[in-house]
Write a protein that binds this DNA or RNA. Structure first.
Length: 492
RNA sequence: GGGCCGUUAGCUCAGCUGGUAGAGCAGCUGACUCUUAAUCAGCGGGUCGGAGGUUCGAUCCCUCCACGGCUCACCA
């Protein structure tokens, strides 16, 4: 931490003076009768004369965010959890002693005030303060009032300051909470049960990604932070839960970018006796209803582009999406031609990739960036979908879709593979890829196979990246703007 | 991890060709009882991200390092 500068030292001095005068600079509770927003909303229609005729006495607590001082009077704004309201302090009203303490206050201090409402000459609803208490002395200066705080490093590292001075930042996080609430309401109303499954797993499964490793001392065993809850949620299907979901953190030991944070939040839900087609309809309904709940609209703008979340959304099969992007037919079924084509498209290949993986390189380069309006891409190659059920008509493809908006993957869903023999073979294939050097390939999970051998009902499951959904709905271009405390390097 | 860019007062930013740093806000002192970017007068505040190097002299040029941003790779 840096040394205390002159401004901070001045405030420590004021703190000492306040203590010397027998006043507690860090008080206990304060009973506010109202909030800034309640006052502004509730007295919108009250005229200057109304307020003079029928005096409204209020008490409110908050942080001083602006001070405009005259000799024997002062205007201030306090900010509470709901908004801001102006205060007016007069020496005549407060008395000598209280006015002396008032002079020791700084921007940033928390105070509780009692007073009555009036309107100023400029008609701003204001509290004339009759008495006040210092609730908490602030020792550090807040950023200036014109430009506020824009340094992104300070904004992320000291999010508390960002939240104090940038109301739109706070609003994004309020919206995030509302989005998640709307999601829970949607799922709960359809009979889904929210559950919690292990964050620490001895075999990190359910996704292709590199995990964080940790160690349990008493058990003497390595554990991994989960990369997905999928395999545990499916064990619950085996156990008889028919509709379950989990909204929680996943951890992936990979690069950090404007779209990736090492810990991020996913919704995963599983629905017995359904297939991926049911989830297409449900996803359209869920996301458009969340948008309506939270934004009051299904038309949004993201990074200058208008996006319509009104159902129905475009659907295209994986192969057709490649065809539409101009990929020649022979590339779609020939691994050698696909390899050549993927290379030309700029993919970095290690060699030995199966056709599905090669096609996916092409897909990511040629198709994904152009999926601006919500689009379901269906029927993925089996090679890159080790947990999905095969299509009856063509086992090279699975019953799976991904949802793309703004060229980004928003959801991934499939009919769950419930054939233990097929699942075991797929794991074995993954293990082989792992042994061939693919660190992200699945490991064998014997217990999961055992669970499937007891019998898992046919089911469909889906994952939706909450952070990315929040980005979309709040117009945020960086994932760090929708995560309160994004991961940063250690401060020096 | 690679490439590009950035880091100057508490905050937001200037700083020319290399000659040891400025503004606004915030702060302090004083004036001021309806301001809201309050106003007026005065004052203080800097390891110019860090360490080396070049130079008579470095905020400025070079090297390395740290942190951040964008981007590519990896991925969701």
């Amino acid at each position: 931490m840096e040394d205390y500068n002159e401004l901070i030292q001045q405030r420590f001095k004021k703190l000492a003076e306040i203590r010397e005068s027998g006043i507690k600079p860090y008080a206990g509770k304060f009973d506010a009768t109202t909030s800034a927003q309640a006052l502004n909303d509730g007295h919108q229609a009250a005229s200057k004369e109304d307020l003079e005729k029928n005096r409204v006495t209020v008490s409110i607590a908050g942080r001083i965010v602006a001070l405009r001082s005259f000799g024997k009077a002062c205007f201030a704004h306090v900010q509470d959890g709901s908004g801001r309201i102006q205060l007016y302090f007069q020496k005549n009203t407060l008395g000598e002693e209280a006015f002396f303490l008032f002079k020791k206050l700084d921007i940033g201090d928390f105070i509780g005030v009692k007073g009555f409402l009036f309107r100023t000459r400029t008609n701003e609803l204001t509290i004339e303060v009759e008495s006040f208490v210092l609730l908490s002395k602030s020792l550090r200066p807040l950023p200036e009032k014109w430009h506020g705080l824009t340094d992104v490093e300070i904004r992320y590292r000291q999010r508390y300051v960002d939240l104090i001075v940038n109301p739109e930042v706070k609003n994004v996080f309020v919206m995030r909470t509302r989005i998640v609430q709307a999601m829970r309401t949607f799922l709960n109303s359809r009979g889904f049960l929210e559950v919690e499954t292990p964050m620490m797993q001895s075999i990190p499964g359910g996704a292709t990604a590199r995990p964080f490793k940790t160690h349990h001392n008493a058990l003497g065993m390595d554990l991994y932070l989960r990369i997905a809850p999928e395999l545990y949620l499916k064990r619950l299907l085996v156990g008889g839960f028919e509709r379950v979901y989990e909204i929680n953190r996943n951890f992936r030991n990979e690069g950090i970018s404007t779209r990736h944070n090492p810990e991020f939040t996913m919704l995963e839900f599983y629905m017995a006796y359904a297939d991926y087609r049911d989830l297409i309809a449900m996803t359209e309904e869920m996301i458009s209803s969340i948008a309506t709940d939270v934004l009051g609209a299904t038309e949004i703008e993201y990074e200058g582009q208008k996006i319509s979340l009104a159902a129905p959304w475009k659907k295209v099969t994986y192969l057709d999406s490649l065809r539409e992007a101009g990929v020649p037919e022979e590339v779609l079924s020939d691994a050698d031609k696909a390899r050549e084509y993927a290379k030309k498209a700029g993919a970095t290949l290690k060699g030995g990739e199966p056709l599905g993986k090669l096609l996916n390189e092409v897909f990511e380069a040629k198709v994904e960036p152009n999926l601006i309006q919500p689009t379901f891409v269906t029927d993925y190659p089996t090679d890159i979908s080790p947990l999905s059920k095969r299509r009856d008509d063509d086992p090279r493809f699975v019953e799976r879709f991904e949802l793309f908006v703004m060229g980004r993957e928003m959801a991934n869903a499939f009919s769950e593979l419930n054939d233990p023999v097929d699942q075991k073979e797929r794991f074995q294939k993954q293990v082989a890829e792992r042994e061939a050097g693919d660190e992200e390939a699945h490991q064998m999970d014997e217990d999961f196979i055992r669970a499937l051998e007891y019998g898992m009902p046919p089911a469909a499951g889906e994952g939706i990246g909450i952070d990315r959904l929040v980005m979309l709905l709040t117009g945020s271009s960086s994932i760090r703007d929708v995560i309160l405390f994004p991961q940063m390097k250690k401060e020096k």
